[in-house]
Nucleic acid binder design. Structure first.
Length: 730
DNA sequence: TCAGAGGTAATTTTT
DNA sequence: TTACCTCTGA
């Protein structure tokens, strides 16, 4: 019964799920049952016969979210989820381009470059153009290229305005040509190529538009310009777009996300109403009140207020540590006490702004024997040995992939030196062929160019070509799993790592690749190599797991988005760190940091603890930061300060800042230099008539030349001449 | 061809 | 401080 689906939904959720065939924006607050609404809506549409599964298109950002959607959907309605158009933007683009590779001017087995592959491809282009990578850092070039692709701009659409942009523009052009020649596409290209395909091919566009009568989008606030254009192309006038998002949780502006897409969507689709999901099923009241109060400080919002039927719960706990070591010590102590109360470590998370902060925390946890797991390391398909193995496979599928060719032509070593490769590369450029084509044409001889290349290199290349040939044959003849075994054997990768002193882990990962292939065949019922390679590029796998079982969760606030924990610690709440100092100079920077803080707070179900350190080791130097403004933005009535003695009468935060320290042992003393010419000490709180309050970081010079560096709460880090600046100590 | 030196930069990240 | 990259010398 379709009405069973609506059981237990609140009125807003129900309204969203049962909306008629019209476009709508659902503002879904943290913990408001967003995924439930999304999946129930799909099930509802199918069960009420408004759409067949084929007429649905649902897009997410991560594979994890897509998987979850499919699992939950198939639990609600008995349908075969295979073949459903539910996936990530990139995954769906890949599917589209595979189906129409000819129209998209791509080879049938085009390969997908991940960011690392893209960067090496860019380096290769720049080397061929003889560009100085000091003057033009490849990372910047990558940013330039991806930025323009996300704006939908090809090189032909860009007007260079100075020498620098001329160079960038030219590299972009050359990079595109190289990718096209090699039959590879990067992530942004998947989107852009799809958009162009749909723009130019009216027949195709109309086909999909009439097919997808219902389009659903998850995390709409994270879409970039190109993704929005893509959506508009696929969702025609006959389609209803159901966009779910939360502008207050937009934390990916730095990688191109446009919250503005939400307003544009309202306008472009002439939306009559916005449905707000504000009832929260995750946290206790105090936590929500804190989050609501914090986010009210942002100017640009669509507006939303979370509430709960649960009680107020515990107050927000705040600890002001003396330094980072003390902060870690405190956290460990608290985690232990939670543990003794019977809380499982998996239910506790330590969140921080920057990965570097994990080191001190890890050290303390290790010392205390508390198991933990850090998110954010290398993922399976990003490991070097796995990338090498994949390069062999890529060559079997598409031998013109020069990137893959160069990666493994001499790995394991076959005596092919840099010199031989340089000759080969320039000859390939001259004859406008791929390295593989050229090598085949030369029959294993290295081209003669001035110096005579050794016969060893020639023999090595011959061996290499034979390996590729055997893998090509195997790819057509044997199942995926067996192909892996053949590849590891033929390439000599396993043998190579076996001889290495520290190669045991790598051998293990290579063996894991065999099971990954087996699992892939089993789960997807796909046995073709191209599909597996796409999978490897589009889904790099889980983040590295630490010691398994019951482990404390350590991660950045960014990676915590979408997750929830019974107890959450947010560490490093200092000006300069959170909000990060770099954000102070960015447009919308502090507001995005505040949204990040909002995400952090709303991860907690029962207990929320905020910590800061008055000074911490950063870049090898002791840095002093003031208490984060975000702590001050939480109403004091909701807070309980654990560090200092609470003053008997309404204490000001500034007073508390200098309040007596906890008696915790202090392992590291800050330098407290004093000099007769500079009346300030490092770490001292000062105030400035224009910039407000801050902390002295360091000083130099004496007399009228004396300068001090101050970390201001609102203005960031500044150097100022003491002679002119009027600083007062307090 | 590889190991060690030296220089430099140092948010956040999915695909 | 540390991690990563490039360069150099054996």
């Amino acid at each position: 019964m379709a009405s069973d689906l609506l059981q237990g939904l609140n009125p807003e959720q129900r309204a969203a799920v049962t909306l008629p065939h019209q476009s709508a924006l659902i503002l879904a607050g943290a913990g408001s049952g967003k995924t439930r609404v999304l999946t129930t809506r799909m099930a509802w549409l199918i069960q009420t016969g408004q759409v067949s599964p084929q007429g649905l298109l649902a897009v997410t950002f991560t594979n994890k979210a897509a998987r979850e959607m499919l699992t939950r959907l198939s639990a609600l309605v008995p349908i075969n989820t295979r073949g459903l158009w539910v996936g990530t933007f990139h995954g769906l683009c890949n599917r589209l381009l595979r189906a129409h590779h000819r129209e998209a001017r791509l080879p049938p087995l085009f390969q997908i470059l991940d960011s690392g592959d893209q960067l090496s491809a860019i380096k290769r282009v720049m080397k061929a153009m003889n560009l100085d990578s000091e003057r033009y850092p490849p990372k910047n070039v990558q940013h330039y290229i991806n930025g323009h692709k996300e704006e939908g701009q090809r090189p032909s659409a860009i007007e260079p305005y100075d020498a620098m942009s001329r160079v960038l523009h030219d590299v972009y052009g050359a990079y595109e040509a190289q990718c096209q020649k090699e039959g590879v596409v990067d992530f942004a290209e998947l989107l852009l190529r799809s958009v162009e395909l749909l723009q130019t091919n009216e027949l195709l566009r109309e086909h999909y538009r009439s097919r997808f009568s219902f389009v659903l989008v998850d995390e709409f606030q994270d879409t970039n310009r190109l993704q929005y254009v893509w959506l508009k192309l696929l969702a025609g006038p006959q389609s209803a777009v159901f966009a779910v998002g939360d502008d207050d949780q937009s934390i990916y502006g730095f990688r191109g996300a446009e919250v503005g897409n939400m307003r544009d969507f309202e306008r472009d689709y002439g939306l009559k109403e916005v449905i707000r999901l504000e009832q929260n099923y995750r946290s206790y009241g105090n936590i929500l009140d804190a989050a609501n109060a914090l986010i009210r400080n942002n100017q640009s919002r669509m507006g939303k207020n979370l509430w709960t039927e649960a009680g107020a719960g515990e107050p927000i706990r705040i600890y002001e540590a003396y330094n980072d070591l003390d902060e870690a010590r405190f956290v460990v102590e608290q985690v232990k006490s939670l543990q003794s109360e019977g809380m499982a470590l998996t239910d506790v998370a330590l969140l921080y702004r920057a990965n570097a902060q994990s080191r001190v925390l890890e050290h303390a946890l290790f010392g205390a024997g508390i198991g933990y797991r850090v998110y954010g390391g290398l993922r399976f398909f990003e490991r070097m040995e796995v990338k090498h193995a994949l390069a062999y496979l890529r060559l079997a599928a598409n031998p013109d992939d020069d990137g893959a060719f160069l990666r493994v032509v001499n790995f394991p070593p076959r005596g092919i030196g840099a010199r031989s490769l340089e000759i080969l590369q320039s000859a390939a450029v001259a004859s406008n062929t791929s390295l593989h084509q050229l090598a085949v044409a030369l029959g294993g001889q290295t081209p003669q160019r001035g110096l005579t290349p050794s016969g060893k290199a020639g023999a090595g290349i011959k061996t290499f070509l034979q390996i590729i040939e055997r893998l090509q044959t195997a790819a057509d003849a044997v199942p995926l799993e067996e192909l892996m075994v053949v590849m590891l054997e033929e390439s000599g990768l396993t043998a190579h790592y076996r001889t290495e002193r520290e190669g045991a882990d790598r051998v293990e990962n290579l063996e894991e690749l065999v099971s990954a292939a087996a699992g892939f065949e089993h789960e997807t019922e796909l046995s073709d190599l191209a599909a597996f390679l796409s999978h490897a590029s589009l889904e790099a796998g889980e983040h590295e797991a630490g010691p398994g079982d019951d482990a404390l969760q350590l991660m950045t606030v960014h990676s915590a988005k979408g997750l929830e924990f019974k107890a959450v610690f947010v560490c490093g709440l200092e000006e300069g760190l959170f909000p990060h100092e770099n954000s102070l100079n960015e447009v919308d920077g502090v507001e995005e940091e505040r949204r990040l803080m909002y995400v952090a707070l709303t991860r907690a179900r029962k207990q929320l603890t905020l910590t800061r350190a008055e000074n911490r080791m950063l870049h090898g130097q002791i840095r002093y930061g003031m208490r984060s403004r975000f702590i001050d933005e939480i109403p004091e009535a909701l807070c309980k300060f654990l560090s200092a003695e609470p003053a008997p009468y309404a204490p000001k935060h500034t007073e508390r800042y200098n309040a007596p320290r906890s008696s915790a042992p202090v392992e590291r003393q800050p330098e407290m230099k004093r000099s007769e010419s500079v009346p300030f000490s490092i770490g001292q709180s000062v105030s400035h008539s224009k910039f407000g309050s801050g902390v002295v970081l360091q000083y130099e010079g004496r007399g009228t030349d004396a300068r001090v560096q101050v970390n201001f709460r609102d203005a960031g880090v500044k150097w100022m001449a003491l002679h002119y600046a009027h600083l007062t100590a307090f």
